[in-house]
Design a protein around this nucleic acid. Structure first.
Lengths: 211, 211
DNA sequence: GACCCACTGACGAACGTCCGTTAGTCTGTG
DNA sequence: CACAGACTAACGGACGTTCGTCAGTGGGTC
């Protein structure tokens, strides 16, 4: 497990006296462990037994916290998309000009993709494994997120004469470029998330607004 | 199956008299079907039974053509990386200046990612499912591919004063941006692969060289 | 032309293993 | 005492893979 999971082995560890309130609730630990395993091996490549082992409980106990394996993935994906959507809204609201909005948007997206790289990638890549009834609400949120980007670009093209051959194509190009930061970003890496966000902000502005 | 698979049902179809040489060999059909299923549902989400059903043979017969499920994925991933690497080499050789080389490189990458979108995405996303002994050779090829990009950017930064804050970061940004075309490209879509490649070529040049 | 034989690629049946999930029980905490 | 949350044990089913078998094809020999 490359990122940071450790198998928990606690033969005698039945919440001895709920000592530390800092200790995260089991449901959260399950969600975090599952996020990491889904990231590493995919949804279908990860078993409930494995999740349980890393959390340090027996497989059956998972069902005290989640109704099903699908529900774990759904909670990860939906929660992530929700965070991204509200964050992007705030980013846009924090600037007035299209140029300022684009920069804030890209910077937010990069920062989020970096600091929440596991969540963000799982929400993207494992969509196919979400149950059909649940998939709709996640996709809907994603569409609304993308349209935030698109609207800023469209306004820049209309009002400021940006170099945009094709708004949807460029929207997607910028968004995916920023998403991909999560693939290589590391908390202890050479560059901070803010520094990378700034580089990408420059890149996007230069690509679209000009030098 | 969204892309184009059809379940093959042929109760009486034992290569009646090897009539058409146009009919692809079974191994190729298996590879193509597997590519599509891995793309749609991931490696672990796809079963050998399912692959066999879409090809129109029984599961056991798959093993006349591939030693294992892992081998199918490996052949897809390695073959794809090989094609991309040799294509990128040719793209670089076709221009002399860093600017020309970057444009050709981006255009090739976009065009390949568009016209081979299933292969390309499977090779990227399903790497985690490749057996450890085989993973090395695929990763190695990918590293060499990335260094082709990196070298062009580095040369542009050194010799032509391009705006590159950080060569590895920008390398990755451009490459992933171009890869992502495969997510939405469709053969019968509004824009041809060449047109999209050109848009992305412009975008990359503008982002890095300036207007 | 008739025979032989290696080869290819399909088949049905079965293997041991692992899967997600459930039922029922026990135990410590409030 | 009630309850939340852990446990043990087990379920049916799906998994990748192996096996023995067999029809059809093609080339070499008489």
């Amino acid at each position: 497990m490359a990122v940071g999971l450790r198998l928990v082995d606690r033969p005698q560890n039945r919440m001895l006296h709920t000592n530390s309130p800092a200790e995260p609730a089991t449901a959260i630990r399950i969600r975090d462990v599952a996020t990491e395993l889904f990231y590493e091996k995919g949804y279908h490549g990860t078993s409930m037994r494995e999740i349980a082992a890393y959390v340090g409980i027996k497989p059956a106990s998972l069902y005290n916290h989640f109704a099903s394996k699908h529900d774990i993935l759904y909670e990860i994906a939906f929660g992530t998309m929700q965070e991204m959507f509200t964050g992007a809204q705030a980013a846009i609201a924090s600037a007035a000009s299209p140029e300022g909005q684009l920069r804030r948007l890209v910077e937010f997206h990069v920062r989020y993709s970096a600091t929440n790289r596991l969540r963000a990638k799982v929400a993207d890549d494992q969509l196919h494994a979400i149950a059909d009834e649940q998939k709709g609400s996640v996709l809907d949120l994603r569409d609304r997120y993308e349209s935030l980007f698109r609207d800023v670009l469209r306004r820049g093209a209309d009002e400021c004469g940006w170099h945009i051959d094709d708004v949807p194509v460029v929207t997607f190009a910028i968004a995916t470029m920023a998403s991909a930061v999560g693939v290589w970003y590391r908390d202890d890496g050479r560059l901070s998330a803010d520094a990378i966000a700034s580089i990408y902000g420059d890149l996007a502005i230069r690509a679209v607004v000009g030098t």
